[in-house]
Nucleic acid binder design. Structure first.
Lengths: 259, 259
DNA sequence: GCTCATCTCCTTATGGCGTAAAGTGACCGG
DNA sequence: CCGGTCACTTTACGCCATAAGGAGATGAGC
């Protein structure tokens, strides 16, 4: 369930994203009992609670005591609603300036990580068709501001920004997908892993000989055994932290050879 | 459309993934006219051509001149079919050893990049529930073998492997999502970008003042203007290349401080 | 206080999805 | 030739986005 935003009429959608509180005209016909804002908030609530797959026009309408079709008075279609939802939640982001560029990047990444865990459905909106709303662009500009003191060239800077996004998204997706799978199947992460790996050693008795390095990697874990955090989530968080430091080290090294 | 593999009965599915050409017993009833292999190949063909959203049991059955329900004689459900498809295509991977660990990692990443562009639907199978088939594990072991000479500690190695996967997947997803959006909407990447950005400057006339760094980044492009490659694909490929070098530089730096 | 245009919101309908249930007829050993 | 077994089919269910058309509320002009 990857979903495209930014598919509707660009003029209409962009106007809704960037509108500065449009003046309410008085017009004939019954008074609206809903509003775009109310619908967007209801839709975000549905998506937060039920996931992207549970986000249906029926569900949003039901949460507001209306039918699905009632929403079409306010939004052109589901894709436009998604645009508005996407930019709406990005308004939650806004870390301030930091001591140096490394701290700034770390803070930006940490905030985005928490944001994705709070709104896992955002990870299912494809970045290949960016929404281009004000809140998303504000966040991008903040990252560039944090990175500015590093003094990178434009091509490298573009790569760093992409890398940061892929890093946070990849690791966060691991966590949210894992939670979603656990909820949908009623089988916890650890139960799933236990069942599969038990089957694996049975069906591939030569595992250790065929995969010596995977085996070594798997046995060399320093995590405390009595974790309350599921296996996959722990791994994802670790990969986020290590990956971030690797990237910062890579930027530093590139910075020196560039400058 | 993110889809979970590895949801069925683990015993049954793992046996099918790791089977060593099961002996064909003679049994009463009509002779099977299909086979698991034929079905998997047909399903891969459908997914390659129509994408994950077009992969339906009906479509696979139709390609084989059967109904959707006929497939259920051979596979337990769609999730099991997906497991088999996933591991089947991973059998295409297999880069050999390289001169040094950097070259090995680059070759591994390049091969995976091409693989994802060939089978874009694979990017929609969630990594939070790995299939654990032989071909996928072979590929993971090959990466570890390439990285072995770098002499990394287990935690850092795990981070590097995750980063590499996120890097290739993130950049490749950009390309495949972009192509998919273009096909589904009939609007090319560049057309979409042109329409949206034209609308953006109109609706946000203070863009340059509000987003000075984004503006600077956008105007400092060194790409040749007469590209035959769509904008988004060009960007994605560049981010893949820069990201890979950043990661290698980060590994090198970490390697030195570790060792 | 009427009419009429306009608007919100409703009901209904369409085609696609995975797959459960039940039916049809082919093939085998005896 | 019989009876069990199996491959494959038809039908049916609930859910999705949204097109089409209808009901009733409201405001403007008179």
């Amino acid at each position: 369930m990857v979903v495209f935003a930014a598919q509707g009429d660009p003029r209409r959608t962009m106007a809704m994203l960037w509108r500065a509180a449009a003046a309410a005209e008085v017009r004939p016909g019954p008074r609206p009992t809903l509003s775009v804002d109310v619908i967007v908030e209801a839709a975000v609530a549905v998506a937060d609670a039920e996931g992207m797959a549970g986000l249906s026009m029926r569900a949003v309408g039901e949460r507001l005591g209306r039918t699905a079709m009632a929403l079409y008075t306010y939004v052109a279609d589901k894709s436009e609603l998604l645009d508005l939802m996407y930019d709406h939640v990005h308004g939650e982001l806004g870390v301030g300036p930091a001591a140096d560029w490394r701290a700034g990047v770390r803070a930006w990444a940490e905030e985005l990580w928490a944001f994705y865990l709070r709104h896992p459905w955002v990870l299912q909106v494809s970045m290949a068709r960016p929404v281009l709303g004000p809140n998303e662009l504000d966040s991008a500009e903040r990252l560039l501001r944090a990175l500015e003191p590093a003094g990178l060239s434009a091509p490298v800077l573009r790569g760093v920004v992409s890398q940061l996004n892929h890093l946070v998204q990849g690791a966060a997706r691991m966590v949210t997908d894992s939670r979603r799978a656990a909820r949908e199947t009623g089988q916890s992460d650890d139960d799933w892993w236990y069942a599969r790996s038990a089957e694996l050693v049975e069906v591939a008795p030569d595992f250790g000989a065929r995969y010596p390095l995977l085996t070594w990697l798997e046995t060399n874990k320093d995590s405390t055994p009595n974790e309350t955090v599921p296996y996959m989530e722990h791994e994802a968080r670790a990969s986020f932290e290590v990956g971030l430091e690797l990237l910062l080290a890579g930027v530093e090294a590139t910075r020196l050879t560039e400058g």
